[in-house]
Every structure is written in C-alpha cells, then in structure tokens.
Amino acid sequence: MSEEITPALFNHLVELAALELSPLEADYLRRELNNQLKAIHELEAMPLDPQTPVASHGVPYPPSHSPALRADQVDPYPDPARLLQTAPEIEDGFIIVPEIPHQKI
C-alpha cells in the first residue's frame, strides 16, 4: 500500500502547523503518521449506520447536571499585571512582537 502521507502532503501539514523540522525529525514523524493511519483505518472495518450520532463527549449533560450559565457581565481579572509577567517581552503593558506580515491595500 502506498504511503498516505506523502512528502509533499507532509510538508504542507508542517507549514499549516507553524512548525519547522530537521530532516531526522521529518523522517520519524512522517513514518509514525503513516503507521498510526494503519491503525486508524481499522475504523473502516466497522459497518456504520449513517444515523449513528457523533459523540463530542461521553457523559450526557442533562440540565440537572449542568451548571447555570454565568450572568452576561464583565468580570475583570483581578491582577492583569501578573498575567503579563509571563509574556516573553513586554513594554508599557503591551506584549512586544516582531513585524506582523501584512499587505498594503
């Protein structure tokens, strides 16, 4: 069986994922993706009624188990400066980033 994740498709995924890989990493990751897909294709062995619902989680959430929605009001974080301290580079309360790619209209 030919490889499902070809080098070209793999490179496209790497671009979408905002990653950069060494050749060694790329070899390993592409091989493991194709191996995992062999396992994933086992799902196709299961005859599936198209009416079978999708389950985004296992446990049902009836109203009796669900918390009430919060009031729709602003609830400021008590210490935003503490959050900003975790940013790699800040200045005057702003997070600093390099040039943002853009096109002049």
Partner: peptide, 25 residues
C-alpha cells in the same frame, strides 16, 4: 524576520517530537 517566523521557530525549538506528532495528525 516576522511574527510568522517567530511562531515557527518558537514551536520548532520548544516542542519535543510527541507534541509535533499530535499536532500534525
């Protein structure tokens, strides 16, 4: 060079192989 390059390099250097594998799949 720019913000996109910052994303790529930070993620490439910061993540190990297993997070990268999960992102790609």
């Amino acid at each position: 060079e720019d913000l996109r390059s910052l994303y790529r390099q930070s993620r490439a250097q910061g993540f190990g192989l297993q997070p990268k594998l999960r992102i790609l799949m």
